[in-house]
């Protein structure tokens, strides 16, 4: 398979005049310490001195700080945005890391050692040797019910999540269903309520007892949190109103024929009817080639 770094026209050496992986070593050390703390307290948001990156806030500055602080020369990086390796923002981030480190990049999920993602978990099962880095716009799951950071931090400290339960209850009373689309709040390790970043509900069950280290980072909001391997991750639900994933019943990807993946709905230019394609483009291509995934 062609290396994407070759496609992007970047060479294998890091750019002159910049430290390996852009950040200075003090910053990397700080980030690694904060990551260790996050791993030690699953789901707890660790504040850190987020730096400005050569990437706009809200475009993955958190994810890229984590990636740059943990990446080594032997790593192989994959970057996806909404499931796609070729989305403009994914390309941009991959180019930046590749230029600043010279590491190999790939679109093949199974070959990557670090996968930075915006809003998806790859369909292909991940292994204990891989780290998934999430870009996070809103680290605080309680923000929808409480605007003040000072207050939400206290709510976490006291494990006071009654406001969120009430929010879900009111949702059901008003609409007959829980209407949260992406960013579905989860209890992590039975202790901290966590925002899993805007992954679809489809991906939420895949965080549960996963063998992978999941690192979450919000650059603008300056928070790092983690789900270490084999951690309990439970979406909030009631006994009579269960958590539901997106319903793709009866729909298949028109490229690879999958009926077990998260699908993007596309409005057909000609007919105006919806069509469906896998959101995970790398997975879709593998299936089309008949590879075992």
């Amino acid at each position: 398979m062609t290396e994407l770094s070759t496609l992007a026209g970047t060479d294998s050496e890091a750019v002159e005049g910049y430290n390996f992986a852009f950040l200075d070593e003090f910053t990397k050390r700080e980030l690694r310490r904060k990551i260790l703390k996050a791993v030690a307290i699953p789901g707890y948001q660790v504040p850190f001195g987020s730096r400005e990156m050569p990437l706009a806030k809200g475009w993955g500055t958190g994810g890229i700080q984590v990636t740059l602080s943990i990446i080594g020369k032997s790593d192989v990086l994959k970057v996806i945005d909404q499931g796609s390796d070729e989305s403009v923002n994914a390309v941009n981030i991959r180019n930046l890391v590749s230029r600043m480190t010279g590491v190999k990049t790939t679109s093949d999920t199974s070959r990557a050692t670090i996968i930075q993602t915006r809003h998806r978990i790859p369909e292909e099962p991940l292994t204990k040797d891989q780290i998934l880095v999430f870009q996070v716009p809103f680290p605080e799951p309680l923000r929808t019910i409480e605007p003040s950071e000072q207050v939400t931090r206290r709510m976490h400290a006291e494990q006071d999540y009654s406001g969120m339960w009430l929010h879900l209850y009111e949702d059901i009373v008003k609409h007959g269903k829980i209407t949260i689309g992406a960013r579905y709040p989860c209890m992590v390790n039975g202790r901290h309520l966590m925002d899993p970043s805007p992954i679809p509900r489809w991906d939420v069950p895949r965080l549960h007892k996963s063998p992978v280290l999941h690192l979450f980072c919000a650059g603008r909001e300056k928070r790092i949190y983690a789900i270490p391997p084999h951690t309990l991750v439970e979406p909030l639900e009631f006994e009579d109103y269960r958590f539901e994933t997106e319903d793709f019943c009866g729909k298949v990807c028109e490229r690879c024929g999958s009926s077990d993946t998260f699908l993007d709905e596309i409005i057909d230019d000609a007919t105006g009817n919806p069509r469906y394609l896998c959101s995970d483009t790398s997975f879709c291509e593998k299936r089309q080639r008949g590879e075992d995934v």
């Binding site: 923002n89 809003h119 992406a182 509900r201 699908l263």
Partner: peptide
């Protein structure tokens, strides 16, 4: 930026 996935979740809801 693309929000296809998150919007798909909202559509579903």
């Amino acid at each position: 930026l693309p929000h296809y996935v998150t919007f798909q979740s909202s559509l579903d809801r």
